[in-house]
C-alpha cells in the first residue's frame, strides 16, 4: 500500500516553475533570464539554480540597468558572480544616456519607455535572445492575470493580448520563427505572499531595502521617496527626513515609494503583509497612469 503523496502549495509552485525553466533550456536556442535584483528575481534565481542542480544553470542572466536603481541594488547585483559563480550581463541604453533621459527631467513615462522598454528590446535584439524569462506574476495586475506562461512576441516584440496562443496543461508551444520571441513567466501562479513564504522557507537572500530601517525620505504626492543619492533635486524648503521605512517593491528609486514600517525581519515583513490593505504595485509611480496602462506598455514590449 502506497501512502498518500501530498505536496504543499509551495511544493507545487516550485515544481511548476522548475518545469518551466527546464522547458526553456531544452527548447530555445538563446534563452536569457531578465534579472531585476528584486525579491521576485531572487526567487527566480534560486529556482533556476535548483532546476539544473548540480550543473550550473545553462541560461545566462541579463540586467537592464536604467542607471537610476538604488545603490544597494547595484551592489547586490555586482556581488552575484562571486557568490554563485554565475555571469550577469548588464545592458544600458546608451542612446538614452547620451540624450540625458532621466525620471527627473523627462518624467516616469518617458524614462521607463527609453531606459527600460527600449533598452530591453535593444538587448534582446543585440544578443538575439529567442526566450526571455521574467519574474512577473499574474496577481500583480489585471492584464498580467490574462497573460500566458509562454507569451508570444512578434518580431517587433509586440504582445497581442486578444490573440494569444491557447496554452493547455503544462505543454508549452515554444515554436517561433526567426526574429520572433517568447517571454516566459515561471512565477505566473505565485502571489506576493507565496514569494515571501518561499523566501522564508528556503532562506533566500534578498535586499536589505525590503526590511525596515531609518532611511532619508521626502514625501511627494503621498509617496515616500528615498533620497538615495544627490541626483534627486529637492524643492525649496524640502529636507529629507529619517524615517523607519521599507519597500514592498523595487524599481528606479525616484519612482518607487517606500512605506512606513518597523518590520525589520522576514517574519515581521510577512506579518505586516498579511494585514496590508493596499497592493504592492501601489508604490510604483509608473502604474498611476490611466487605466490599462500596463496592458499598453506590455503590448509595446515592457515586461
Amino acid at each position: 500500500m502506497i501512502p498518500p503523496h501530498q505536496l504543499t502549495h509551495l511544493d507545487r509552485l516550485e515544481a511548476e516553475s522548475i518545469h518551466i525553466f527546464r522547458e526553456v533550456a531544452a527548447e530555445f536556442q538563446h534563452p536569457v533570464m531578465l534579472y531585476s535584483i528584486g525579491k521576485d528575481s531572487s526567487v527566480l534565481l534560486h529556482l533556476l539554480r535548483k532546476a539544473f542542480y548540480p550543473a550550473k544553470p545553462p541560461i545566462p542572466l541579463l540586467h537592464v540597468d536604467t542607471t537610476w536603481k538604488f545603490r544597494e541594488m547595484i551592489a547586490f547585483r555586482n556581488s552575484l558572480p562571486a557568490r554563485y559563480g554565475i555571469d550577469i550581463k548588464v545592458h544600458i541604453n546608451q542612446d538614452g544616456v547620451r540624450q540625458g533621459i532621466s525620471p527627473i527631467s523627462h518624467g516616469a513615462t518617458v524614462h521607463t519607455d527609453v531606459m527600460k522598454t527600449q533598452a530591453l528590446k535593444q538587448a534582446l535584439d543585440l544578443y538575439r535572445f529567442d526566450a526571455a524569462i521574467g519574474g512577473a506574476r499574474r496577481d500583480e495586475e489585471k492584464s498580467r492575470a490574462k497573460e500566458r506562461v509562454f507569451s508570444f512576441r512578434s518580431s517587433g516584440h509586440r504582445w497581442d493580448p486578444k490573440n494569444q496562443r491557447p496554452e493547455l496543461w503544462d505543454i508549452y508551444n515554444t515554436r517561433v520563427h526567426q526574429g520572433e520571441s517568447v517571454r516566459v513567466f515561471p512565477l505566473s501562479n505565485w502571489t506576493e505572499l507565496d514569494i515571501w513564504l518561499y523566501i522564508y522557507r528556503e532562506q533566500i537572500e534578498v535586499l536589505p531595502l525590503y526590511f525596515a530601517a531609518q532611511r532619508p525620505v521626502v514625501e511627494r504626492d503621498g509617496a515616500l521617496i528615498m533620497v538615495d543619492d544627490d541626483r534627486l533635486p529637492l524643492a525649496p524648503g524640502e529636507t529629507p527626513q529619517l524615517r523607519s521605512v521599507r519597500f514592498r517593491t523595487l524599481g528606479c528609486y525616484p519612482l518607487t515609494g517606500a512605506i512606513d514600517s518597523t518590520a525589520a525581519t522576514l517574519e515581521a515583513v510577512i506579518a505586516e503583509m498579511l494585514v496590508a490593505r493596499t497592493s504592492e504595485r501601489q508604490g510604483r509611480v509608473i502604474d498611476q497612469d490611466p487605466t490599462a496602462s500596463m496592458e499598453k506598455k506590455k503590448q509595446e514590449g515592457y515586461f
Partner: peptide, 9 residues
Amino acid sequence: LTQHEHKSL
C-alpha cells in the same frame, strides 16, 4: 507561517 506553508492547492 508553518500553517501557511502547509496549505494544499
